[in-house]
Computed example of a mutant assay.
Amino acid sequence: MASSVLEDVKEEVTCPICLELMTEPVSTDCGHTFCKLCITSSYVLTEHEQGVKKCPVCRDTYQFENLRPSRHVANIVERLRDMTLTHKADQCDLHGEKLLLFCMTDEKFICWLCEHSQQHRGHYTLLMQEAAQVYWTRLQEVLQKLLKDEKEFEKWNAHIDEERTSWKAGGHTSSGC
């Protein structure tokens, strides 16, 4: 129950433009709140007449000069960022959503909100199962190549042994990966 309420609060302080927790939240005349940088970028990128602009959420007009810092939202965001939420391994650290996608560009698991965020916009993403198939195919191709060239196989095998020895000597464990 508490985590559901926390998720609702988190959703309320998520910028509707960048889909991240707000940074320097500011409110428009219509009462919607955005990251200062996001609403400024939106304002600059779209045509406007004499400082009048339409809210990206409700399309009501607002005066850019009337943007006001939202201290209450900033305080909530700060407290949310400070909290260490317990989350499952299959949940996004940023959004708490289930990790269902794989960003091939950054080679990392992401949630659907990450896919639409600035950080991953325009990146090549796949469902996890599809990405696993792509990597499995690549692995099989590499293994086939290694098996064809015995010297190359022995070189890679020696390299792997060296890495394993180095890893163990450094006190690292495979569970930390």
Rank of each mutant, 00 (worst) to 15 (best):
Q50R: 07
G51V: 06
G51E: 08
V52H: 06
K53N: 00
C55L: 08
P56M: 09
P56H: 07
P56W: 11
P56T: 10
V57M: 06
C58G: 00
R59K: 14
R59D: 02
D60Y: 00
T61K: 04
T61D: 06
Y62I: 04
Q63W: 03
F64T: 00
F64M: 04
F64Y: 14
E65P: 01
E65R: 08
N66R: 14
N66M: 09
L67N: 05
R68K: 15
H72K: 12
H72C: 09
V73F: 01
V73S: 02
V73N: 01
V77M: 03
V77T: 08
E78T: 15
R79W: 02
D82A: 15
T84N: 08
L85Y: 07
L85N: 04
T86K: 02
K88A: 15
K88E: 15
A89P: 10
D90S: 09
Q91I: 12
Q91A: 07
C92I: 05
C92S: 10
L94G: 05
H95L: 11
H95V: 14
K98F: 14
K98T: 15
L101C: 05
F102W: 14
C103E: 06
T105M: 08
D106R: 03
D106S: 10
E107A: 14
K108W: 07
F109R: 09
C111I: 13
C111M: 13
H116C: 08
G122F: 06
G122Y: 04
H123L: 11
H123G: 09
Y124F: 13
Y124A: 10
T125Q: 08
T125E: 05
T125N: 15
L126G: 06
L126T: 07
L126S: 06
M128C: 15
Q129A: 15
Q129M: 14
E130H: 12
A131G: 09
A131S: 11
A132V: 14
A132W: 02
Q133C: 01
V134I: 15
V134E: 13
V134N: 09
T137R: 11
T137I: 11
T137V: 11
Q140A: 14
L143F: 05
L143C: 07
L143R: 02
Q144D: 13
Q144L: 05
Q144H: 08
K145N: 08
L146N: 03
L146C: 10
L147C: 03
K148G: 11
K148L: 14
E150Q: 10
E152S: 11
E154D: 12
W156D: 04
